[in-house]
Each structure stands twice: as C-alpha cells, then as structure tokens.
Design a protein around this nucleic acid. Structure first.
Lengths: 154, 154
DNA sequence: GGTTGAAATGATATGATATATCATTATTTA
DNA sequence: TAAATAATGATATATCATATCATTTCAACC
C-alpha cells in the first residue's frame, strides 16, 4: 500500500537517529517497518502479531510498547489517542522540520492522512487558546470523518 | 468544586430529556450527578466507585457504560478520547444550542475546560479539511497543556 | 387492575489496551 | 576484559471496554 520507498524511509530514520544519538536497534527498526508497511493504524498487539508474521520471531507486547515509546520520542511514530493505535510519521523522509501532526481519520476504512493544516490557522487556534490563559503542549489534532474514496462508495 | 448549581443543571437535563422523549431514569441521573460533582474527568470504573460512595448502592460497570452511552447520546456527557474519561457537558443549563465541544485538558491537575473556540476559526478549519476532500464527522478538539493555576505553581 | 411488550438494568465472562517490576542480554566505554 | 548502561524478555497485573443472556421495571393497552 505504501506509496513511498520503505527502505529509503528507514535509511532516513537511521540517519536522523544517529544525529540525535538515539539507537535505532534492529528490533526497533523492524517495528517501524511494520508500521510503514501497514495500510492503517495498528494497536500494539496488532504490531506484535505483524512482527511475528514478518520476521518469524516472537516479540513480547511489553517490548513493543517500549519500542513504540522510543519511536515516538524520536518523532518516527505517532499515537492516535482517539483509537489507541499507532502510525508511522508521514514525514520521516521529508527535509523540512517536523511540525505538530494533524490527522484525518476515516471512520469507514480506518485509513489516516497526516496533513499539514494551514500554519496560520493553527497559529490562530493557538492564540485563541492562549487567550484562555492556557499553555498548550502540542496541538495535535485528530479529526474523524469519511475519506474521499469511502465517500464515493456512498 | 462545582461553580454551578448541580440541582438546577439536573432539572434542566430532565427538561431537555422530556423534550426529546428520552428517559432520564434515577440511576442515569445519579451518574450525571456524579460527573457534575467531580472536579475532573472520570473513567467508567471511577464513576462506578463514586456512585457506590454517594448512594451506598452497588452498580455494575457494564451498567455505567450503558448509562454513559445514553447520556452522551443526549449531549449531557462527553467522552475524552485522549484519556478514556468522561465529563459532564458544561452547557447543559445554557439556553443556546450545543455546538461541537472543544476541550482544554490540563496535564498537571487533570482539570478540563470546555471552551467555545471562535466559530470562524472552527469554520476555517473545517474548510481547510474539506479542501482535502475529507468529510468531517465532528470536529471535537482535545488540546493538552497546562492550565492557568498550574502555571502559577511553576 | 392485570397482561404484554419494550426498555432498562444486572450478572457474568471475556477481550483489548497498558504498565509495573525484576531478570537477562547486548552494547558502550574505560 | 570489566564495569556500567541501555535494551529486551518474562511475568503479573491493572485498566478500559464489549458481548451475551437473565431479570426487573415501566408504559400502554385491553
């Protein structure tokens, strides 16, 4: 399903980790690979199962959670709070610096688009929030709806 | 902690249910009351426990979930997807029609403000989304950060 | 008022998501 | 190579949620 070169993205992830002194071990890399190949967000348990299928090796779910934590800390993976699933960052191979992710989640096919909402809009939103004397951590937005191709199948 | 009159809000909830032909039974009302009195969002299990404390009656968690479903369908309660907790709608006693809720969640004290983000802003956001050929269900926003009073305690 | 059908609630089991903790293995560094 | 640190495994358990069938409550009708 991937419309991008998984190996290339993995290499870029590797480079990015080296830069930050983070160790992208072989297992962590495999977890990322699983998510890059997945066509939709996956739960930690689903990831463990896919890992088994793709490597013929067992992996404890506990380890999957830890590796996901690592990948999230390094901006390689995001967690979708609204459905407790994980997704590879869509911008690993992009050169531009990462901004807060915004997600469009299709409630029919479960596919997710990671979009760049207009910066001015996000900025205005942040300002409106700060007028409420609230200090925003990270304005990750998760928006649920129906994607283009599912709309067509009415 | 409530800065509003719980009984008054409950009466308004009652009226609103009658209007819609929905049955706000005594137990459902108690669940709502628990949330109105809570100073922060609560999980279904916490609600069951608070219910026991406040009524001296046991209640199965399964029932709590069902009653929460009812209350959510009738816009009396919202679920925060980002932490799997429930909160009473802040606008039950307001006359104006309910809009999609937006939440500011304090990651220190867990308190939540249900705010009205500028309608134009939300509208612009929706438009930006629809330019991505995505049909939005409901733009409930959950924004995490630090509230005013927690900021002061640095 | 009693009967009946539908809605609400209870009881029980189980699935799904997540974390705590201690043991073991691998890697880095001196 | 030894010691220190980081990563992973193993096990247990906490937490969140749903499926299913039984029982009770309530409204409507005769």
């Amino acid at each position: 399903m991937a419309t991008f070169d998984v190996d290339n993205v993995l290499q870029q992830a590797e480079r990015s980790c080296v830069e930050h002194g983070a160790r992208l071990t072989s297992k962590r890399k495999h977890i990322l690979e699983v998510l890059l190949k997945a066509e939709a967000p996956r739960s930690a348990y689903e990831i463990a199962e896919l890992y088994r299928q793709q490597t013929d090796e067992n992996i404890p779910v506990m380890s999957v959670y830890r590796m996901l934590d690592f990948l999230m800390q390094n901006s390689l993976v995001h967690k979708l709070a609204s459905n407790n699933k994980f997704i590879a960052c869509a911008h690993i191979a992009c050169s531009h610096s990462h901004q807060t992710p915004q997600f469009l989640i299709c409630d029919k096919c479960q596919q997710v688009r990671e979009i760049g909402v207009d910066k001015q809009l996000i900025h205005a939103l942040e300002e409106s929030i700060e007028n409420n004397h609230f200090q925003l951590n990270s304005p990750q937005l998760e928006l649920h709806g129906v994607c283009e191709s599912c709309q067509k199948q009415h």
